[in-house]
Design a protein around this nucleic acid. Structure first.
Lengths: 206, 206
DNA sequence: CCATAGATCTCGCTG
DNA sequence: CAGCGAGGTCTATGG
């Protein structure tokens, strides 16, 4: 029996059934099962980053012979045949990771060097709200040209182009579309060229 | 010292630095560290489903006082202050999960009942290739009307609309756009209505 | 709550 | 290998 009130690491021979947004079965085998303070449950196989089965934070657990984890209308049933290793985790830290070089960092960088890209800048808006979603960066020039900029921290794809197009539609006139990213896919570049979207390469300055 | 040739579970007081696509630091604390057969490395805090730090399959590891995991040009450095629990995982299974009710299942279901949605169907293509990506479902009627259908297993959003629009552009004429999903967001429905895209509600039949 | 989009996305598939 | 899209996406953020 496991203690449902404590986070744990469990290595067990078991079989797993999931039902909720979708349905799944995992055949009998030896799997790693981890439960966290917030209810998070993960079942890991010996390869891949993603868990085979999981419950996001908020799940509750019971152990009456088989372990059952429930969250909203989703349930995971773990039929345990034998426990190989059980470890209760105490004093588990909950610090946040500090991440640099996100899309938001790239946006800050572009704003700081905005004169490299646009002349006569009157206004800069970040996450400018439109009825079709927020524009990463909206740069308005003194002649009232609206420059709609979509930033991508990695390689921009076709969907970045359609994102820009969608935001462009919320303006009547005097509007230009841009994609700014370190790289862009071939298909996206073709789409941009044929749809009046300008691609600008930008890199993280470290 | 850990054994780099074996998968393991490690609970340790440590500090972590990551450098690669982005950069991050994780302050000193007690974290769960798991390494898999395929090189996968995960550092988990006491909450949330996703690891604080990670390396996808293919990473190699060394332990000379501090653990360093490297994959392509990315590295994770784990400075260990003390090992609280170390467990070497043997006979870890590698079975795949069998998932039902995916988008592909929904597509099969729609095809089986295609007469409910379209009359005089001549051809049905799945994942029909265009230069702007593959169309989930292309239904051609005897009058040569091309029905471009985008399926979503969950709630369709605005991006589903622009996906359809993008595929529509690869046809000259006789083309109609559809979104089929159990539900749709308000914004997406408004966008669809004003852009000549038809929304059709479909549910998983169990 | 819902909606929207980012992510060190991951992962699978196809060319 | 690149490109494209799904995902039980998850997670953060704003309305």
């Amino acid at each position: 029996m496991i203690n449902p009130t404590k986070p744990f690491f469990l290595f067990a021979n078991c079989e797993i059934k999931y039902s909720g947004r979708a349905r799944s079965t995992l055949e009998k085998g030896n799997y790693v099962i981890i439960r966290k303070f917030d209810g998070t449950l993960m079942i890991h196989g010996s390869t891949l980053l993603k868990p085979l089965n999981f419950q996001p934070p908020g799940a509750t657990i019971t152990d009456n012979g088989k372990i059952i984890s429930i969250r909203n209308k989703e349930s995971i049933e773990i039929i345990i045949f034998s426990i190989i290793h059980y470890y209760e985790i105490n004093d588990w830290s909950n610090n946040k990771i500090i991440l640099q070089d996100t899309e938001s960092d790239l946006r800050e960088q572009v704003i700081k060097n905005i004169s490299l890209y646009f002349k006569n800048v009157k206004e800069i808006h970040q996450e400018f709200k439109t009825r079709f979603g927020p524009i990463d960066l909206l740069v308005i020039q003194t002649d009232d040209t609206n420059n709609v900029i979509e930033l991508k921290r990695g390689r921009a794809g076709i969907s970045a182009c359609t994102q820009v197009e969608r935001y462009l539609k919320t303006f009547q006139n005097k509007v230009c579309g841009f994609i700014m990213s370190p790289t862009i896919t071939k298909g996206a570049l073709e789409y941009a060229k044929t749809h009046d979207i300008t691609y600008v390469a930008v890199n993280f300055l470290r």
